[in-house]
């Protein structure tokens, strides 16, 4: 599925959050959505996923509006892993992951053989198969994120959105989730991930979109986006640069004066 947003404007609580955003997402690409707090990353992700209506502009899915496409088709075509990892009841992990099959299920029956296979594949891909009989309440933060990731994978949608999937994780699990996202993109899924860690974003993503004050400041390959000038303007920081195995990375190093948010 190809997702194209044009001229997105939205104000929340009287404050303009996005002011004229154009963005196109295609299959097989891992896109990192970066930008300072309050830049509008989550709002943009929610608009792209049809979870929030923009005040102006439109989002088209393979050239069609969400309404024309239909809610079920959209739910099967676009899977969303939200920030925070809300799980309200202590479900068993395999039951939780099976919630990702809801858009595919018809009638009153239980899970079909195809649904069960998809759940097993998702658990395997997220390295969570061994957790499947545990309950959600008994998972560490890393295990929980992998289980929720498996839930999002179980939809087997051609597009996958993840809002800050590595925010609360230790370095080991950050790398693990980033590798999983990259693997999905290599397998043909279009992936959009909101990220704060510039080093991870620059290393794993095929393309970065840098948001600042509701506008796209830069959109392109990591080396073209993570320039000193862009990072000064967006984050008001100076960075250290390094290189390993031919891959460059940036490390935020010092602040440049105070930055006014939003």
């Amino acid at each position: 599925m190809r997702i194209e947003a044009t001229g997105i404007h939205i104000a929340l609580g009287g404050r303009p959050v996005l002011a004229g955003v154009d963005l196109a997402l295609v299959p097989g690409e891992l896109v990192g959505l970066i930008g300072p707090n309050g830049a509008g990353k989550t709002t943009l992700l929610r608009i792209l996923a049809n979870l929030l209506m923009p005040d102006a502009g439109e989002v088209r899915y393979d050239g069609r509006s969400a309404r024309a496409l239909g809610g079920d088709a959209l739910a099967r075509g676009l899977s969303v892993l939200m920030q925070g990892g809300e799980v309200n009841w202590p479900l068993r992990v395999d039951h939780l992951v099976a919630l990702g099959r809801l858009p595919h299920r018809r009638g009153l029956g239980g899970l079909s053989a195809a649904d069960r296979d998809a759940v097993a594949r998702a658990l395997d891909a997220a390295d969570a198969a061994h957790l499947r009989l545990r309950t959600a309440g008994h998972l560490s933060a890393g295990e929980r994120m992998r289980v929720l990731f498996a839930r999002a994978l179980a939809v087997e949608a051609p597009m996958l959105f993840a809002d800050e999937p590595v925010a609360a994780l230790d370095p080991f699990h950050q790398l693990q989730i980033m590798e999983l996202l990259q693997a999905r993109a290599r397998a043909g899924t279009g992936v959009l991930a909101v990220l704060h860690d510039l080093a991870l974003a620059g290393r794993f993503c095929d393309r970065l979109v840098l948001l600042q004050d509701g506008r796209i400041l830069a959109d392109g390959p990591p080396e073209a986006v993570l320039t000193d000038d862009h990072l000064r303007r967006a984050y008001a920081v100076e960075v250290q640069r390094g290189q390993r195995d031919g891959v460059g990375y940036v490390l935020p190093w010092s602040r440049i004066g105070p930055r006014e948010e939003g």
Partner: peptide
Amino acid sequence: TLGEDTAASLG
């Protein structure tokens, strides 16, 4: 169970 946004994304 997974929150309002996730439920909406599931249709």
